[in-house]
Amino acid sequence: MSRALGWLMLAAALAIPQVSGSSAWLTFWITTLLFAYLGQAWNVLAGYGGQFSFGHAAFFGTGAYIAAILQVRYGVNPWIAGLGGVAGGGIVGAAIGWVSFRYGLRGSYFALVTLAFAEVFRVLANAVAITGGGQGLLIPLKPGVEHFQFVDRASFYYLLVALVVSGVLIARWLEASRFGAWLVAVRENEDAARALGIRVFRVKLAAIALSAAMAGTAGVVYAQLFLYLDAGVAYGGHVSVEALLGPIVGGLGTALGPVVGAILLHGLGEAAKGVVGATPGLNLVLYGVVLVIMLRFLPNGVVGWLKRWGQR
């Protein structure tokens, strides 16, 4: 059932640039897929591992900043700088995970500590010189594949499709692999998992490092897309919120949930703009109302609902 949905979505994704060459259409899909991938990163840790982070901006922003700093300040090739960003995101994730899990933080305590770390990073990025401080960091415009800046929007789009597919495959791997089974066991009952001989701390640490490296990847792509970073853009609270909205609406702990959720939410955002007109804020009121109504009637997310429906 959800396998069929996955193939269907992939076919649709490849057809999207054929439907219309319109750049607004492509931009819509590029941003949606970027946040779908960020959502998948969050889903790996929260959906499969049960650790709710409110601070994925810390990983996203670190990936973005490292990629940008390496190429702007040290002249590193943007592709290699990007790899640095991915690694940096993962390392920061592992470090935050290490202290948090070491001291046994769970539930809302873990959530709040990640939120606090993201805020510390935001304040620091605004204060130190290497990030450009408050003035932000501008990546020079150098169109060309070798500079990780595609002239053609469609190339960026296909890159993101590939990323999102890789994210779904990671989630599928979690569903099928031994590591994933450990992770789910930790989510369901940590003490029981420990009793079964699962090394809980290591499993959680691996999950947060993987999740954070994925979030860092999203940050790298963001930097290459928009070529400008400041502390609010990279470490802002809205990044952390974007990361968790999609998976929860789409279906927590499902491989396709974050993708479905991101498409639904971004589509809803656009639709709301179309419906209510120009008064600032009204579209977001509508967005919030629909969000709450969706939660009311689809408590397990869209994919969760589809799965139940399929089982009937």
Partner: peptide, 22 residues
């Protein structure tokens, strides 16, 4: 005269169908 971008204009890339408000 004012108008807003609406969804159809975005999705279809059509300019003619966008609704005029004001």
């Amino acid at each position: 005269m004012t108008k807003t971008l609406n969804r159809r204009a975005v999705l279809a890339g059509a300019t003619a169908v966008a609704g005029t408000i004001a």
